[in-house]
Computed example of a mutant assay.
Amino acid sequence: MKLRGKQKRYLRAQAHNMRPLFQVGKEGLTPNWLKQIEDAIEKRELLKINMLQNALVEDDEVVAYIENNSKIQVVQKIGHVFVLYKQADKKEHRTYSLEVAKI
């Protein structure tokens, strides 16, 4: 599902007070790192990741890697912080997706 502008705005507002849960470090982007993010986002639907200064990859590479290798969407990128969203597969974990569907 491709997010519309109002839906992204809602998700950005919800993520405003969140702290980043994951980091992209000098080891870069690995399938194991992405698997951990997918597991976490399945329970939360919305999370932030932070890119460290010593990371060997660029911001655009991180966005492309996440979106090309998973169903996760990058909602926002400010500096080295990314907001990620994916609708949970299990209905009991859906909180944000119910509101996004109404918008």
Rank of each mutant, 00 (worst) to 15 (best):
A64S: 08
V74H: 14
E92Y: 05
D39C: 07
E99C: 00
A64G: 10
K71S: 15
E45Y: 09
H93V: 08
L3C: 02
V74D: 14
K102P: 08
Y96N: 03
R12L: 09
A88R: 09
N32W: 04
L98N: 07
E45M: 09
N69D: 07
Q87L: 08
K26Y: 14
H80W: 06
Q87T: 04
L3F: 09
E61C: 03
L84K: 05
N50P: 05
R94H: 08
N68C: 01
N50A: 12
I72H: 12
R9G: 02
G5R: 04
G25Y: 09
N17D: 10
R94W: 07
T95P: 02
I49F: 14
W33E: 11
Q53S: 13
Q87P: 08
Q23I: 02
L56P: 07
R19H: 06
Q76E: 06
E61A: 07
M1I: 12
F22W: 15
L46W: 06
V75Q: 10
L98E: 02
E92H: 08
I66G: 09
L52F: 02
I41P: 05
V83A: 15
D60L: 12
Q76G: 02
I49E: 00
E92C: 06
K86V: 07
M51S: 00
K2F: 15
I49V: 01
K86M: 09
L46K: 00
G79S: 12
Q14W: 00
L29Y: 10
